[in-house]
Design a protein around this nucleic acid. Structure first.
Lengths: 224, 224
DNA sequence: GAGTGGTCTAGACCACATT
DNA sequence: ATGTGGTCTAGACCACTCT
């Protein structure tokens, strides 16, 4: 590989400040936004785009990979690339260390185990995790307190399995109305809106656990 | 490039399911966590790692680029790569790119100006900002939509002043019950818990603006 | 077997910063 | 001038899915 790889596109790069992979990304987003590529539809394969756009596969691949990480596309090895779920909501925040928030609440931290038991997986969680309903899971229910005031409820479902390396997590943040359960465990005297963070953990493609963290808004506030 | 690129590492790949760039990532993270590479210190350059680890630069580059996006490293072109700043304080979320969230909602974004006027600063905002009540401020009220469905309400108070450089922001995230105003502007048919982000902006010690962003939880979800 | 995405290589040119 | 990161190429092999 001694010959130069420079070609006419090098000049295009210079004329347009945006890198090629960024141009590919916006092009793909345009196709999605305009409805040209409908939701859940399959989009041209990487090799196809390589031929069509006359770019290197690494360039195409990077563009599509980043769009996937941002939730716009879904890639299935051996099958193809699809426009991601109907974007019901979405806007990605970079909550890099939610882990710290959850663990490191060290100062005045107190933790009560409300219950900890093996139980069959309920239909709701089973569906969201694409697992069999009724499979045995470990359900743990913790109440975290600060100054003896309940501040966070943790409801976790864990698949009882050996844990290999390289965990990955997905977080989802929303607001919910408080439920009777919250009123009881968090000692709420009246309904309160709560911030809820759902954290799903995976080891490779194997689901490991889901945890719901619930914070009553009147007792908690997140500073960024 | 007719010769095969297969080398001994191909077998390593087979033996260890983890891709090379993932191995590099964990290796780098190990060095950071162990204190081997202290905060703000410069780490070996990409070319150095290429030589040391005998991998392609693209592989090294991908690992470091992803670590940068995740906030573990900081890269400066022409200078080098550095261990990123120490972790934020407990209970602080790192909403690094709330700005992006607010601006970048480019996909299907639409913005209606509900009103935009100068008005005297009300007591509530004045107190939280330590400003004089009744001072003239510009009040703007925007409704941001996706697919013609209202998804975010923005209520901003801006001090009418020249804007020098070096903006700083503070964000605060909580959950609130919806108000009659929300029902009207966001076209909510029933009370919904909402995620609310309050963003305060300063120029040095001079307050510039406060904006409240309100998202009905049933239409919005934050993925992290 | 054909097609797909996942990864990797060994180069290359560029913009940028420091010396 | 040297070294750095940012991008890009033109191939390659692999694991996977589908027919």
């Amino acid at each position: 590989m001694k010959t130069s790889h420079t070609n006419s596109r090098s000049q295009i790069i210079h004329e347009t400040p945006k890198p090629l992979y960024e141009q590919v990304k916006t092009s793909v987003l345009d196709n999605i936004q305009s409805g040209n590529w409908p939701n859940h539809s399959q989009i041209p394969s990487e090799h196809m785009m390589v031929r069509e756009l006359k770019m290197s596969r690494m360039t195409i691949h990077r563009a599509l990979r980043e769009l996937t990480k941002d939730g716009h596309l879904e890639r299935i090895q051996g099958v193809g690339i699809f426009v991601a779920k109907p974007k019901p909501k979405t806007t990605n925040l970079n909550l890099a260390d939610i882990k710290d928030m959850i663990q490191k609440r060290g100062d005045l931290h107190n933790c009560d185990v409300k219950f900890l038991q093996s139980e069959p997986l309920d239909a709701d969680v089973a569906k969201t995790l694409n697992l069999k309903e009724g499979a045995p899971v470990i359900r743990s229910y913790f109440m975290h307190s600060q100054n003896s005031l309940p501040g966070m409820l943790q409801d976790r479902h864990t698949i009882p399995d050996l844990v290999p390396g390289m965990l990955t997590h997905k977080h989802q943040l929303t607001a919910i109305p408080s439920t009777a359960e919250h009123h009881h465990f968090l000692m709420l005297e009246q309904p309160r809106p709560c911030v809820q963070i759902i954290r799903k953990s995976w080891s490779g493609k194997r689901f490991l656990s889901q945890a719901k963290y619930t914070f009553p808004a009147n007792r908690f506030c997140f500073y960024c």
